[in-house]
Every structure is written in C-alpha cells, then in structure tokens.
Design a protein around this nucleic acid. Structure first.
Length: 128
DNA sequence: ACGCTGACTATTA
DNA sequence: CTAATAGCCAGCG
C-alpha cells in the first residue's frame, strides 16, 4: 500500500479541520459498504480492523461520522444484540429506527428482528 | 497531566 | 438464560 510517512510516527493527530487517516476512516468505509436492509455490529467492524477489543472506538468513530462525507449509514450499525444502542445520538432518537424500517428492517422495542439473518459480517463479506 | 466517561464485547460465575 | 467484571483507547473537565 502507498505509505505516506510525513512523520517518523504514525499520524493520529488532527490538524485543524483536516481528516486523519486513522482507524476512524476505515470504520466509515466499512459502514458505507453495508448493504441496504442489512446491519452489522461495532465488534464486527472492530474485528475487521484487527482491533476486536476496541469496539468502543468504533462507536466513538460513529460519533465523528456526522461531519464526514459522504453520509455514513450509521443507522445500520447496532450492538451485538441487535439493539439500537446508538439511536439517541442521531438528530432525534426515532430517526435510526425510521431509516432502518424504510430499508425493510423490522424493529420492535429497539430490537432488530431477525438480527442474525440481517447481520452483515464485514470480516466474512470482505474476505478478511 | 490525571481521571472519568462512553453508540462495546468477551469472559466468568 | 442473566449479572458482574475486565479490557479497550480517544476526548473532555
């Protein structure tokens, strides 16, 4: 892969307004690849990046996804139980469920129905 | 600079 | 099955 060593250490800094080529961008790319009407989990994304234990950072990355373009379908990312744990971080909590249902995903009491069937595993689908 | 928090998960009891 | 605990690491007071 083309490496850009502008410094002796890996860049994790955030130069004023400039996007960083860290973990965060990788998360966004994977989330954008989630097919419509499917969902995935934070842990699955973290695992695809090789940082299974850092599932929390995936959620944190989602938090940054708001000011990233193109739009990141963060509503397709739920926790491992299929619960819409991140719904309260959207513009308004019901938005996440609305978007999912619009894509054909059934949700009852913040729980994705047929979660295992709709689950899209990036590790498996991307062949990692 | 230190400590707490958090859109999580795997492990253990 | 549920409940409690540890690990994870970037941001914020």
């Amino acid at each position: 892969m083309p490496l850009k060593k502008s410094s002796d250490k890996i860049s994790r800094v955030k130069p004023s307004g400039l996007k960083d080529d860290s973990f965060f961008d990788l998360v966004f790319e994977i989330v954008r690849q989630v097919p419509k009407g499917r969902v995935t989990s934070y842990g699955a994304i973290a695992a695809a990046l090789g940082t299974r234990s850092s599932a929390r950072m995936v959620g944190w990355a989602m938090n940054s996804s708001h000011h990233v373009s193109p739009t990141v379908p963060a509503h397709r990312v739920v926790n491992r139980k299929g619960l819409l744990s991140g719904k309260m971080h959207f513009a308004y909590p019901e938005q996440m469920q609305e978007l999912l249902e619009k894509e054909g995903v059934k949700i009852i009491d913040d729980q994705v129905q047929d979660f295992e069937k709709l689950f899209w595993d990036p590790v498996k689908e991307l062949g990692l």
